[in-house]
Design a protein around this nucleic acid. Structure first.
Ligand SMILES: Nc1ccn([C@H]2C[C@H](O)[C@@H](COP(=O)(O)OP(=O)(O)OP(=O)(O)O)O2)c(=O)n1
Ligand SMILES: [Mg+2]
Ligand SMILES: [Mg+2]
Length: 848
DNA sequence: ATCCTCCCCTAC
DNA sequence: TAAGGTAGGGGAGGAT
């Protein structure tokens, strides 16, 4: 099982160590590369078109942060065996001897080997030797530490403490090699090794059989030193905490055993800051309570510690201050998240620039997911935003004092696809509404991971990608709204053209970013050829697009779109404002009314209304934007790309609409969803707009492989025909339950989508299905078969439809025993089918 | 109670 | 000039 990871290790993502070569041969002739600024910011995002890759290549923190994943791939068998070391669960007092071992001043030791003459001189590893510089010391040897030099210090401070300090450059390849030697030796001597970092591990030496742990420690240290030319120190104690502390005492090049009976004595005067887990924050808080040493900490009751610091933290403090630690030495466990972030050198010129950077980050994360053999469902975008009062940071190109913001979204099916990541990230990014000039750091994290065990992903023809790309796959959303809106639009027959037109444009724009080879100085000049003139757009629809989409679109039209909307608002007033989303049109009152009873359509409306009341609040926020910046043009740079020109309301109706466009994220998600966005009209046998989304990418559309592939084994499908076979079959059935479905079919206007029919069933206030009538089991069987036929028919072409149906079914199952049994019966079949076609699990969220 | 999102803290 | 990443633990507070 663990070997699954072996094959799932394609090319590595950017790394200081891996030999991966990204071909940068100027593929991306983005504007950034042509406008090489006045070399001032050669190493910021300004001026380096390949910033992300170069940055990670040189980052020490990236190196140590990603080391664990490399270790996983190098020793797959050790990643996930039986989890914990052994069964000894006696809390608190274990008799298990533990060794903690850690290389001495690792980065220095490794590179100093080629400079033996420096051995007792103060030496540090750092990118820069500039005595006025703000480069950070990565590691300092022990002579250097005598001067007070520490890791993390600016080189200028280190130099001022010790002017003769010798600076050596990094050598990440060597660090990796030595780390490998280190772990090979550890594994040779002990089968219970918990890797902490590239230079540090715990050994559980319970099964030593008479041998002295201290002798083992010195043997291991000796071997390491001889093999690598670098020294290690070791701590030996009865638990991990004390072993870790013993190592600290042992350094450098020594070892230390702490006898259980001497633990109290050892801890009594020890500053609490030294305990692993107590960092700056906790130490400060404790200092305010007059606690500086472990002895003082012990005087506080567990209750008050837990009240003040929380259950777990309080307990940890109480235990650690007594030298108690019940953790067990364990294997590396499967990772729970994968991410990448950059908080140095981030200075964006404009929205395009920021988005280009985001695309690179997504590429990085996608590669890392693949490197780990996992896919994820929730995506978190982190932004560091310059704090209002903060000026230029002390550290060159640093992020300085920032607010840390994060937004996340969850999709129903795990993915590692770069384009999906990019689409999702872009949407998340839009939801921050931040002036890109205030951005000092960006990170993307993926969690809710699932193993991507089936190495070959689903065939390209399936509809997964376009669905996840469509942004309507965000899990908080209710898909029936989507349907209602769709039916509404369809039945009116108007604005359908306008709608899909809009969507197509947005999609084209999307792909333009990815294939923008031709350097087209700034604007969207080359796009205009493929984009309909402004006057052809259905403004009613445009106006009500979610702001991210609107801003994308606005870019294409050079900001004219927003101008136009603004003008319309001034004269036209609110009538278009809300009429378009949930119009109480007569045509679909039936459906809508049914939905309104308990579905989120009404919830959304309610929320919208609520939010409107909070207008004041939002307006205040908006008003601050112009204040916080000196420049008039900065407005156009904000991520939302929305015009804030007319922030100061001149009338109430105007307030309403501007609020609508600045709606909070989740609300806009609802609105977004209300648009029939990415779905093609029913009946088109097309794989949903894959072709529209990415014309230049050459993704095969379902039309390309029409008759052959889709047709396989569907000849007897109950959904073939007009009306579908099942209609006639059920019509003549003696089972009233089946007759009922036929009624619903016609009530849904002979819709060929099951979801429409299920909608109608939900709308039916009385379910005859509750009564255990005639041949109950036979009815269940027949309907289940119908359902499975439907899955077979749609699973490849339109997985979203399947998803929608199962959400509806799940809802029905709470009210009807019939549907509950059907749901439970067919659900395993659904998952098997999803796994076969998409190698994953489709997550059907619980009903709200 | 348990989950989820948005944080902060910690270690290397 | 300089490369302030990464992942897990956990708390607060809200939704279910
Ligand atoms: N703030 C930090 C901490 C660590 N490291 C890198 C350099 C270190 O050499 C390596 C290992 O970290 P240690 O905490 O083990 O520190 P050293 O090995 O350098 O010194 P010690 O002898 O205290 O273990 O990680 C870093 O770049 N920046
Ligand atoms: Mg070390
Ligand atoms: Mg270490």
């Amino acid at each position: 099982m663990a070997n699954d990871r072996l094959q799932a290790c394609p090319e590595q993502s950017s790394s200081s160590v891996s030999s991966r070569c990204f071909d940068n041969h100027g593929i991306r002739g983005s504007p950034t590369s042509t406008v090489i600024g006045p070399s001032k910011h050669r190493h910021s995002t300004l001026g380096d078109p390949n910033f992300v890759e170069n940055y990670f290549k040189n980052s020490r923190l990236h190196f140590i942060g990603t080391w664990r994943n490399r270790y996983r791939n190098r020793f797959p068998s050790l990643s996930n065996g039986f989890t914990k070391s052994h069964s000894n669960v006696s809390a608190g007092t274990q008799k298990t001897p533990i060794i903690h071992i850690d290389m001495d001043c690792f980065f220095v030791s490794v590179v100093i080997r080629s400079h033996p003459e420096l051995n007792d001189k103060p030496v540090a590893v750092c990118h820069s030797d500039n005595p006025k510089g703000t480069a950070e010391i990565s590691s300092a040897n022990y002579p250097a530490r005598d001067y007070g030099i520490k890791a993390g210090m600016f080189v200028r401070d280190a130099k001022s403490l010790c002017p003769q300090l010798v600076i050596l450059p990094y050598n990440f390849e060597s660090y990796e090699e030595v780390a490998d030697q280190f772990y090979n030796i550890l594994h040779k001597h002990c089968n219970r090794v918990q890797a902490v970092s590239c230079d540090e591990a715990f050994l559980d030496v319970t099964d030593l059989e008479g041998k002295d742990p201290q002798l083992l420690a010195s043997a291991v240290r000796k071997e390491i030193s001889e093999a690598t030319g670098c020294t290690a120190s070791a701590g030996i104690a009865e638990n991990m905490l004390m072993a870790r502390l013993a190592t600290r005492t042992a350094k450098p090049n020594g070892q230390c055993y702490i006898h259980p009976e001497r633990v109290d004595e050892y801890l009594d005067q020890l500053p609490i800051k030294v305990l692993p887990g107590i960092g700056h924050g906790l130490a400060e808080k404790l200092k305010n309570k007059n606690v500086r040493t472990c002895g003082e900490l012990r005087l506080i009751s567990k209750d008050s510690l837990q009240k003040y610091f929380g259950i777990k933290t309080g307990e940890m403090l109480w235990n650690y201050s007594r030298g108690m630690d019940n953790r067990l030495v364990g294997m590396i466990q499967e990772s729970k998240s994968v991410g990448a972030e950059v908080n140095w050198g981030v200075r964006f010129r404009d929205l395009q620039h920021a988005q280009h950077f985001l695309l690179d980050l997504c590429k990085e994360v996608s590669l890392r997911l693949q490197g780990c053999g996992v896919q994820g469902r929730t995506f978190t975008l982190k932004i560091k935003k310059r704090r209002k009062d903060a000026g230029e940071p002390a550290k060159f190109m640093g992020c300085g004092d920032c607010e840390n913001l994060s937004h996340s979204t969850t999709v129903p099916l795990a993915t590692d696809d770069i384009e999906v990541l990019q689409r999702i990230s872009k949407q998340l990014f839009g939801s921050f509404h931040i002036d890109v000039k205030d951005i000092r750091g960006v990170g993307l994290q993926v969690s809710r991971l699932e193993s991507a065990d089936t190495s070959r992903q689903a065939p390209e023809r399936n509809s997964l990608k376009s669905w996840l790309m469509s942004a309507s796959a965000s899990s908080k959303q209710q898909f029936d709204i989507n349907r209602i809106a769709k039916e509404c639009v369809d039945s009116e027959g108007k604005s359908v053209g306008g709608n899909s037109g809009v969507l197509r444009i947005a999609s084209v724009e999307n792909s333009v970013h990815e294939t923008n080879n031709a350097p087209n100085g700034e604007g969207g000049s080359n796009q205009s050829s493929s984009v309909p003139p402004l006057c052809h757009l259905d403004m009613g629809v445009v106006e009500n697009l979610p702001s991210e989409l609107l801003s994308e679109l606005n870019e294409i039209y050079d900001g004219k779109l927003v101008e136009l909307i603004t003008k319309r608002k001034v004269q036209g007033d609110k009538s278009t404002g809300s009429a378009c989303f949930f119009p109480p049109e007569p045509a679909q009152v039936a459906v809508e009314e049914a939905e309104r009873s308990r579905n989120s359509a009404s919830v959304s409306l309610r929320r919208t209304a609520l939010e409107m009341k909070g207008t004041q609040h939002i307006l205040e926020e908006l008003r601050m934007v112009p204040d916080s910046e000196a420049r008039p043009d900065s407005v156009a740079i904000s991520t939302a790309g929305l015009e804030n020109n007319d922030l100061v309301p001149s009338s109430l109706s105007q307030v309403d609409t501007s609020v609508l466009q600045q709606l909070p994220e989740e609300l806009r998600a609802d609105i977004f969803e209300a648009l029939p966005a990415h779905r093609m009209p029913e009946g088109t046998a097309l794989g949903p707009r894959t072709d529209n989304m990415h014309p230049p990418l050459g993704i095969k559309t379902a039309t390309d492989n029409q008759p052959g592939s889709t047709d396989s084994g569907l000849s007897n499908n109950l959904w073939i025909g007009d009306p579908p076979l099942w209609v006639d079959k059920f019509k003549v059935s003696k089972l009233s339950t089946l007759n009922f479905f036929v009624d619903m079919y016609y009530k849904a206007n002979s819709a060929e989508s099951l979801s429409s029919i299920l909608q109608c069933i939900i709308a039916e206030s009385l379910h005859p299905l509750n009564a255990r009538c005639d041949a109950w089991n036979e009815a269940i069987h027949s309907f289940s078969e119908l359902l499975m036929n439907y899955i077979k028919l749609k699973i490849v072409v339109d997985i979203e439809e399947i998803y929608v149906c199962f959400r509806l079914l799940r809802r029905l199952s709470t009210k009807s025993q019939f549907f509950l049994e059907v749901y439970n019966l067919v659900f395993p079949h659904l998952q098997a089918s999803v796994d076969e076609n998409y190698s994953g699990t489709l997550h059907i969220p619980p009903i709200k």
